[in-house]
């Protein structure tokens, strides 16, 4: 009887401890990552490779998402504004939304799936096949070799990919407005420039950078702590994607609260 009463509480307790332990492990991995900066000889030549993998290869999916986001934003804005609000506000909405929210967040979410899963699976496989141990025995610090180049690549390339996504999204929104909404370019541009502030771009970059950091570190974390063969790799990959997606949304809200 007591057991049945206590069961939910012990579940909550276990979950809380697990969460705290997870955050602790993440903190330690992050600290170790920054300490590993001194092993430039190890991560230096891997950085470009990871930048290509994390950034370059993510451009198509990010651009694809951005194109459709721009189209939808444009059309839905005009639908919402019917009559009451002048149409040039479509430009305001497309520009502001792409820069402040959808550009960074949709790119971040897409890349958390692509990059986060890739990292977790790759490092997880290396863990269960003892490749990480092998690195150690050959005197390669694993964090410097595996984590740091990915994290740096994420920090550098997420903003790059996001910038392209924002530009493409605004471009597609603009073309949509031109072709489907009977708006003129000056009208759209007027809306675009009306409330523009350079901080919008800074804000997008802050978001993208933090998303890059979070997605890569979480991918590495789950990869590193993978246990138990192929199934373990699968679990890690799923968890990495789920946790990094959630972190992106939490972080998104955090930046909105602190910076706006």
């Amino acid at each position: 009887m007591t057991e049945r009463i206590l069961a939910p509480f012990s579940t909550i307790g276990r979950r809380a401890v697990a969460l705290a332990a997870g955050i602790g492990r993440w903190g330690m991995l992050t600290a170790e990552t920054f300490r590993s900066l001194r092993h430039v000889d190890v991560w230096g030549r891997l950085l470009l490779q990871q930048m290509a993998k994390i950034g370059l290869d993510s451009v198509p999916i990010a651009v694809f998402i951005a194109i459709f986001t721009g189209i939808v934003l444009s059309l839905q804005a005009s639908y919402t504004f019917t009559g009451a609000v002048p149409l040039y506000f479509v430009g305001v909405l497309v520009g502001k939304t792409m820069m402040l929210e959808l550009g960074p967040v949709l790119t971040g979410l897409a890349l958390s799936g692509r990059v986060g899963a890739n990292i977790a699976a790759e490092i997880g496989t290396m863990r269960v096949t003892e490749q990480i141990d092998a690195l150690e025995t050959m005197a390669y610090p694993p964090v410097a070799y595996l984590v740091l180049p990915r994290v740096l690549a994420g920090i550098i390339m997420f903003p790059v990919v996001t910038a392209l996504a924002i530009a493409v999204g605004i471009g597609s929104g603009w073309l949509t407005a031109l072709q489907l909404l009977d708006m003129s370019t000056p009208e759209f541009v007027r809306g675009l420039t009306l409330f523009f502030e350079p901080f919008d771009v800074t804000f997008a970059f802050i978001k993208a950078t933090s998303f890059g950091f979070v997605v890569t570190t979480i991918g590495c974390l789950f990869g590193f702590h993978t246990r138990g063969g192929a199934e373990g790799v699968g679990t890690s990959t799923t968890q990495a994607v789920v946790v990094s997606s959630m972190s992106i949304l939490v972080l998104d809200a955090f930046w909105a609260v602190t910076l706006l």
Binding site: L48, M51, A52, G55, L56, V59, G95, I156, M157, P159, V160, V161, A163, L164, A167, L192, T193, F196, P198, V201
Partner: peptide, 26 residues
């Protein structure tokens, strides 16, 4: 080629951002 592509993507993003900000700022 891949190395060059990485560089190109970064340059394009930087240019798009810089030009975009300047343009939107008038």
């Amino acid at each position: 080629t891949r190395e060059a592509l990485v560089g190109l993507v970064i340059v394009v993003a930087a240019v798009v951002t810089a030009v975009g900000v300047l343009w939107l700022q008038g």
